[in-house]
Design a protein around this nucleic acid. Structure first.
Lengths: 196, 196
DNA sequence: AAATGAACAAATTGTTTATTTGTTCATTTA
DNA sequence: TAAATGAACAAATAAACAATTTGTTCATTT
């Protein structure tokens, strides 16, 4: 096996098997089998089962994140950037079956209330992405002035609720519709400004 | 023990003990002790441990709910009703130490994502309360027209996130401040309406 | 009528054994 | 010589059983 594409191949196979059986039920032999090798040999490519699991998930989450970032970059209007961010995050995950099945099998990957978030750095980057858009929008006077530190976290929380309900708990249809309605609430607000 | 105030006294004692030790660790003897009776006698007032636990929680949750409803009724302006609803729900719980300690000990009481909500009817009433305010506000042209069925549920979800973070997971300070900011976002919206 | 405490059943916990599975490494293969 | 193997071993998991606790009932007492 050639050294450069190794990790890609390993992660792909590991994600496939882990997403089918979950962490506990997959054995190192299963993954080795998927790769056409023996479990002893797999240890040339993975320190141990736990780190292989962790790295596989990181790989999957980063791929998700980069796809969203790419879609956002394509837009110019800040309002559209914000809406694309919200929609694309859901949209990508609905297509990456293996990733969201694995997330459904292990709620610890994307926990609503993490004690110690195992993928904290990835999620902090996502929050930073939201915050950047907020700050730019405020600077360009497209957005109302809000506490970007707090609101970016709140938006991430709400986004988590939707991701978990829709793709981890399998209520895709109900929540896709609700997402648009919620986006409307967040962007337009509930109150009608009193006439002057 | 007189028949009429019985349940009040029983629930008060049970809540006190359950909130200290949690369901598993409290024994019927503990609760009987708190009431100055023996565990055998406690069975004149409670079917069994599980139903006593359930009824005690229902009693605590209904008390919480009625306090919020009362505060909302006092306001006339729909915008204020909405804001009071959100603030009072948090405010009451911060004061009812026993209730929120018990909720912290047993996340199944107020689950973020219930499979089968043990206190569904209570929570449905809360959602109905939100919905009523939304519908009145829309009728009076104080609120923008939104899908009240969906938005009342979304607001309840967001409110759950805050309750859980602040009082079940014990991050009271951080989230109290965040709540106001979030209320602002929901009521005013993020986007600045384009000038005509 | 309300309360007790002994009696019993049900559930929980602790302990040990058996089995599986993760990990290493001396040896083989290409 | 780097990559792969499979036997060997250790660590974790599951199964089986005994010991203990605790929920629940009920004949008897206050």
């Amino acid at each position: 096996m050639k050294k450069r594409e190794d990790s890609q191949i390993i992660y792909k196979a590991a994600l496939s098997v882990f997403s089918r059986f979950g962490y506990k039920k997959t054995t190192m032999e299963d993954i080795a089998g998927e790769l056409g090798m023996t479990k002893g040999n797999l240890y040339l490519y993975a320190r141990n089962k736990k780190s292989l699991y962790r790295d596989t998930i990181s790989w999957g989450l980063r791929r998700w994140q980069s796809r969203v970032a790419l879609a956002v970059e394509k837009e110019n209007d800040l309002r559209l950037k914000f809406e694309v961010l919200c929609h694309k995050a859901i949209d990508y995950l609905s297509r990456d079956r293996e990733l969201h099945r694995l997330m459904a099998k292990d709620p610890g990957i994307f926990p609503m209330f993490p004690d110690k978030d195992p993928f904290e750095s990835i999620n902090l980057d996502s929050i930073a992405m939201i915050r950047d858009i907020l700050e730019q929008g405020i600077r360009e006077k497209a957005f109302r002035t809000v506490d970007t530190h707090q609101i970016s976290q709140v938006i991430f929380l709400i986004y988590k609720v939707f991701i978990i309900e829709a793709y981890i708990r399998g209520k895709e249809e109900e929540y896709n519709q609700m997402l648009s309605e919620t986006l409307g609430l967040m962007t337009q607000g509930l109150f009608i400004p009193p006439a002057p």
